[in-house]
Design a binder for these strands. Structure first.
Lengths: 325, 325
DNA sequence: GTCTACCGTGGAAGCGGTTCCATCAACCAT
DNA sequence: ATGGTTGATGGAACCGCTTCCACGGTAGAC
């Protein structure tokens, strides 16, 4: 493979001149420039980005850390990040987190110096110890989907979101409302459940613990609720992904949505839009773009720690309707 | 930031020795090693992977090119790739392709030398010109989801897949079967439609062109079919993503699945499994892992051009059932 | 007691760029 | 004619690591 030295030799100029032509960094006479360009052409020369980066002392890539890509909320957010990043010339190195161990590994990874200019972390949070390590290492890091103390982050008031969702159903006349969420081990899902509870309490309904599901095996549990003597007329789901579980269970039972059962999701993912699921939109793609912008500012030297509250909107699809009974 | 020179100075040894300790490349006496390790510890030294890679003449990353991440088939495949890659120490640089222009850009990008060791390309194919450029540049490249002439690729016999799907429905007694696919501009979707047609022809049914949809606006068109005087009793979808469109349209009309309408998808994505969609599995995650293995072989110097036919299986969910009428 | 072998080690060269500094020619003003 | 600019250019130094080669010292063989 040809190097810049080969090009310089062939064009009969110095390496400095070739570099200047390559980067248009300072004036080069038209004739010399042409000489260099033909030499480049003839040799099929391509500059080594590796060498360039070392010399410049940057990596031109950023880490993007995300939970396992199954959930549509994650992929939608990720798309926002990728889209914004592709306009910057920074390459995204994608690190997926499938379990606790990988989470630790990824946080250790992004604290390493040099490999990347910074990191965008989606829907994950560091432990206090990890946060301290990142801080000490001077890692430039932005969080989306989680409010991480002391770090740039964009997040939504999730309790408020499920409250809106629940109130929407109450407004439609529903009185027996179930909640189906992710396991309570995740902080975000605790917040979401809290919003549901507060809305139900405020409306002064009978609260029925049996109607609340938030554990790993919710598929089976959802079936249990729907088959019970007094099934709910509506379900608030803790995520769009959970919502389609509920839709699937309803379908298996020949229940009609929204006539027999109203279902509302949470996230405003691509998937929700695609199937007309009523949901709480939390500006997923926008939040990804915001993260990239904030990271760029950090890289440019900004000391600010921007914190961004994401707007929540009810997105009405066709899976919620007035209570039949 | 401390460099290897600082460490060497502090430990009172030469840089070579520090490097040897770092890489355990050759014998270092226990006392010297300890000296170096404490110096590293005290300085908080971290080696620069950039410099290391330049010196070693490798990049320790690979490109992963994928269409826009909306479709669950893509993300499922991608997960297989990421999972396999995370075991290798190679970092995935994710390049998303949202349109024709980006496709050209990405193929140009992966042909650049040095930035990555190779590329895994998901569900996309290069034009002959692009393929030639890749070949000339000596790019190590593996394709999944597309059979690309002259390149390592893993793909499924898609026509066969839709044939299996259609025959499954016929076996359940369905006679009026619709097809809902992606636009015919995509080669893969042409193959899928062909399989459907051949199964219908073989079964010697009345063929009804009005029951075949394969264009961009299929959502609306699906509704048209379901509302028609003689709606189909079953639908073959060209992908899982299309299948859930059909499910959504059925739900809007209060149709029960599978009682009023059977729906079968194509891909065997995470989503299909999650909602119990009957589909044609094409080993998505496995194909991603296969791609990584093949790429590793290429990087290791293999000259072979492995070509891998993916197995197709009917995955029975709960969205297909015997014909009611 | 000398010779060879080998182990541990220091340090220079090299990976392929960028950039700074010195040089030189051409041009302008005095 | 002379000094001062200015613009284009060559090339050394440097980015931070790996690796090869040379060297000194110890130990085993004779």
């Amino acid at each position: 493979m040809a190097t810049i030295l080969d090009v310089a030799a062939r064009a009969g100029v110095g390496v400095g001149t070739v570099s200047r032509v390559l980067n248009e960094s300072s004036a080069v006479s038209a004739t010399t420039r042409q000489l260099v360009l033909t030499a480049i052409e003839e040799l099929g020369y391509q500059p080594s980005s590796l060498a360039r980066n070392l010399s410049l002392g940057r990596s031109s890539s950023v880490f993007v850390v995300a939970p396992i890509l199954t959930s549509p909320a994650v992929t939608t957010r990720l798309r926002g990040v990728l889209e914004a990043l592709s306009l910057t010339g920074l390459d995204p190195i994608l690190l997926e987190v499938a379990n606790e161990e990988q989470s630790r590994d990824r946080f250790r990874r992004i604290a390493e110096r040099g490999r990347a200019e910074g990191a965008v972390v989606i829907d994950l949070r560091p432990s206090p110890a990890e946060s301290a390590v990142l801080l000490r290492a001077g890692t430039r890091c932005v969080f989306v989907g989680q409010d991480v103390e002391g770090w740039p982050s964009a997040w939504a008031d999730e309790a408020h979101g499920t409250r809106i969702a629940t109130e929407h159903l109450i407004g439609l006349g529903h009185r027996r409302i179930a909640y189906v969420g992710e396991p309570q081990s995740i902080a975000a899902s605790r917040r979401r459940l809290r919003g549901f509870n507060s809305a139900v309490t405020a409306a002064d309904f009978e609260t029925d613990g049996a109607l609340v599901i938030s554990r790993a095996d919710s598929e089976a549990a959802v079936g249990g609720i729907l088959d019970a003597g007094r099934p709910p007329s509506a379900v608030v789901a803790g995520s769009d992904w959970r919502a389609i579980t509920v839709l699937a269970e309803a379908r298996r039972r020949g229940m009609r949505v929204p006539d027999d059962l109203s279902v509302i999701g949470f996230d405003g993912s691509d998937l929700a839009r695609h199937i007309g699921l009523t949901t709480i939109g939390q500006q997923l793609a926008e939040s990804g773009r915001w993260a990239v912008e904030s990271l760029l500012a950090l890289i440019a030297g900004s000391e600010a720690v921007p914190r961004h509250r994401l707007r929540l909107d009810l997105i009405e699809g066709e899976t919620t309707g007035p209570c039949g009974t």
